[in-house]
Design a protein around this nucleic acid. Structure first.
Lengths: 357, 357
DNA sequence: CTGAAAGCGCTTACAG
DNA sequence: CTGAAAGCGCTTACAG
């Protein structure tokens, strides 16, 4: 091989194919003096290759910078090396964090991430997901709430024989296929925090009932309060929609009560921001007149005034754990690293909570 | 073909391949009584197929729900049907919006989106991008700031013959490869708004100088003020880092001046939120004592109190336009829809701006 | 432990 | 306007 000036190579190639053509399995086989099947065995970590043969092949691969073509492998395997993330969560911070977690897990693994936002309200929703998974022959998919709660969707994935991991507030499937976020535990921690401050009239603004998390967060709050002998009264439970406007409206209703709550726990931070607005309009001071706790610990939480106390989920880790489980499914049990995939919510305590007057 | 009960099919298949095996080009060819080359011509919209032949083939494809396998086509084409998004922007809202725009553009097109966040400060940054593009044989990539400003990165893409479109505040490349966001125009609009309110002592908290946008936003502000006969004084220009904390620090310095500004324009909303904190600590009231204008119109802008006036970029459209340009590159000029890809910033006027006392 | 043949589902290059 | 052959870069199934 004669060495060429890079300039020349670039010049010669503009508009054409790759520069130096990348080595293929055939090149490696020829150089190693073995069949390509043996190269294939090395690529796939088969134990049926003599150690010296393997080492020699590895050396040649390294020298040529050889990397097997995922497209060709995929065609032969009838499966790609792509992991899909299917989601309908409107919270960008959540989405980006999960993506980052998945990417952390797949780094150096040869897998790549394909994103697929969707809308469960769309008529063609299930068909679209089916096409997506089928066309890309996805290696597996990560599902986040609320699509992770959709059993019809899961049925399609099973039918297509596409591995999946569901991220959800509560277990909905076999353990290997679940990342459980224990939202109730986080809500219970918020409840204990409020109880410790001396609150007894605690209200809950829930998300829409179609989200599991709405129920889990409520359950956790009720149980956490009950531990301290406090009742989450029905009159203090009100249904929001996980939106800012619904937070404003619900808070207005609560603050207009004859005996208004001294603390409000909201299903997410977005609604907590709505509570701030309603409180301001009503001349209610946070935290002096009213304590507020959110859920998500979004970046906004720390930017509000006073900064918002909020339940925090390790979202990036949730994405990473999910992808790791997916990859584990393809790894022989013997070679699998045992690793814990426990998700534990926490509470970021800030200035929006204080003892009632 | 005998029809089977779905139950049975599911039963029979668990853990195996796809249920009913999907039709291939060979099935279509056999049923149509032509060679697979002719099917291939139909798939690729070749004009060299008799109309009746084409129609017949289309009918058969439709009946069988045939969709060509992108992996197999990709292997033969030496190029995948994946579009990459390479980014290092820390703003999740921005990232998610661009992603949505790209997905809008590729919908029904058979392309899919692979995301690749990265860090320009990493030692292996360029190599990682090269591997990503090379391994996936990307159809093309969309670059957003600040990676869109990286000429070394672009050189690699050219070398790999990978089409790209750069999203940036100012033109850095041929028109077909650029989505120009005209940040300066948005900043100028902010300037005109402040001037109209009667402000003359206007300050600018910039982003890091390594971002083009920092310079463009400053330039636009200066030019917009100059139009109205107002000077953006050097003493009122201060360098931030696009972070909340830097916004706090810069605003503190500005408010401590003997003759503090009556209005502050920040390079992004995150720093504007920092200005709010510094103003609160200093007992300075927004907008009575100080007007504030941000950039991005992030969701937080409307949640702050008072709601933040901010320059708004059509981020989703920017992503869509970029992907459309990419797809256009592969479309013969004759069939290309002419469509405008102009990006125009706007100004969301809210409660954080008022006339100075 | 290793290999020759056939195949994954498409396209290119050539021929007619 | 249409097709037979070879090939894209891998793996499976079989044989030894």
């Amino acid at each position: 091989m004669t060495s060429r000036r890079p300039d020349y190579e670039e010049e010669a190639d503009r508009g054409g194919g790759a520069l130096r053509k990348r080595a293929t399995i055939n090149d490696i086989a020829r150089l190693a003096g073995v069949s390509k099947k043996t190269i294939s065995r090395v690529i796939n970590d088969s134990p049926f290759v003599k150690v010296e043969t393997r080492d020699k092949i590895h050396a040649i691969m390294k020298e040529l910078g050889y990397r097997p073509d995922p497209q060709a492998r995929g065609l032969a395997f009838r499966r790609s090396f792509l992991i899909g993330m299917i989601y309908d969560n409107p919270n960008p911070q959540y989405v980006v964090n999960v993506q980052q977690g998945i990417l952390e897990a797949v780094r150096e693994s040869g897998f790549e991430l394909v994103v697929h936002p969707c809308n469960r309200a769309d008529a063609g929703f299930l068909d679209q997901v089916r096409t997506f998974v089928e066309q890309l022959k996805l290696f597996g998919v990560v599902l986040t709430p609320s699509v992770s709660e959709d059993d019809d969707l899961v049925a399609i994935l099973r039918e297509l024989d596409c591995p999946y991991v569901r991220v959800a507030s509560v277990s909905l499937d076999e353990a290997e296929r679940m990342i459980v976020t224990h939202d109730a535990d986080g809500a219970a921690e918020a409840a204990r925090h409020l109880a410790a401050l001396g609150h007894t009239r605690v209200a809950f603004i829930s998300g829409p009932p179609s989200f599991r998390s709405s129920h889990e967060r409520r359950r956790g709050l009720a149980e956490g309060l009950a531990e301290q002998g406090i009742t989450l009264e029905d009159r203090y439970i009100i249904e929001g929609a996980y939106t800012f406007d619904s937070g404003v409206a619900c808070a207005r209703a609560l603050l207009a009560m004859d005996e208004p709550p001294t603390a409000i726990f909201t299903g997410n931070d977005e609604m907590a921001a709505g509570v701030y607005t309603a409180a301001r309009d009503a001349g209610v001071s946070i935290p002096d007149d009213l304590s507020v706790v959110g859920f998500d610990d979004s970046p906004m939480a720390a930017r509000l005034w006073p900064p918002l106390t909020s339940v925090k989920l390790p979202i990036r880790n949730m994405g990473r754990f999910a992808a790791e489980k997916l990859i584990d499914m393809a790894t022989p049990e013997s070679e699998r690293r045992t690793r814990s995939h426990q998700v534990e919510p926490g509470l970021a305590v800030r200035g929006s909570t204080a003892s009632p007057r």
